[in-house]
């Protein structure tokens, strides 16, 4: 057992876990945040994507101990107060989810993608960037639409603020 401490959605947390505990299980079981999902055992579906120190990471592909002292953000940490993050709002607005199981990972991947590309995201790039996330329900079309719309909106907000 090891004590693993980190900042999770802005809060300092810690827990004693087995050495082999994956970050995703630390988040889901030790911290009880079940928005992050497990959809595979070969790091290929992206249902488990969270942000570690500002970058999208498949939380099934790293040990909790490797995230010790890191800043970790999960889908639960995106909305500010009652306000949805623009990517969350866009997924709803454009019907980018059906069963919702892939959704947290899709949203975290999308936020990371928009952070990297800003307003320069086109359909082709979005589809390519979604390579690590599987959705069995939506056929991706509305996910792509949602990400494009959120990217445009966020870059417009950024320009307005500047």
């Amino acid at each position: 057992m090891t004590k693993v401490a980190m900042t999770l959605n802005g809060k300092k947390v810690q827990a004693d876990v087995e050495d082999r505990t994956l970050l995703v299980h630390y988040i889901r079981e030790a911290q009880g945040l079940t928005g992050t999902h497990v959809g595979c055992d070969t790091s290929q579906c992206g249902a488990c994507v969270v942000h570690v120190n500002g970058k999208a990471v498949k939380s099934c592909s790293m040990l909790a101990a490797q995230a010790a002292d890191a800043e970790v953000v999960t889908v639960e940490g995106l909305a500010k107060g009652g306000d949805l993050h623009p990517v969350q709002a866009a997924f709803r607005e454009h019907h980018g989810l059906q069963c919702g199981f892939c959704t947290p990972g899709m949203i975290m991947t999308a936020v990371d993608m928009i952070n990297r590309y800003g307003g320069n995201l086109d359909e082709k790039t979005i589809r390519h960037e979604l390579e690590g996330n599987i959705c069995r329900c939506t056929g991706y079309q509305n996910i792509v639409k949602a990400i494009k719309s959120a990217a445009d909106q966020m870059s417009a907000m950024k320009t307005a603020a500047e």
Partner: peptide, 13 residues
């Protein structure tokens, strides 16, 4: 949608 996009869905696991 609200519960799914905020990570508040409640699945069996």
């Amino acid at each position: 949608d609200k519960r799914f996009i905020t990570g508040k869905g409640r699945y069996t696991d």
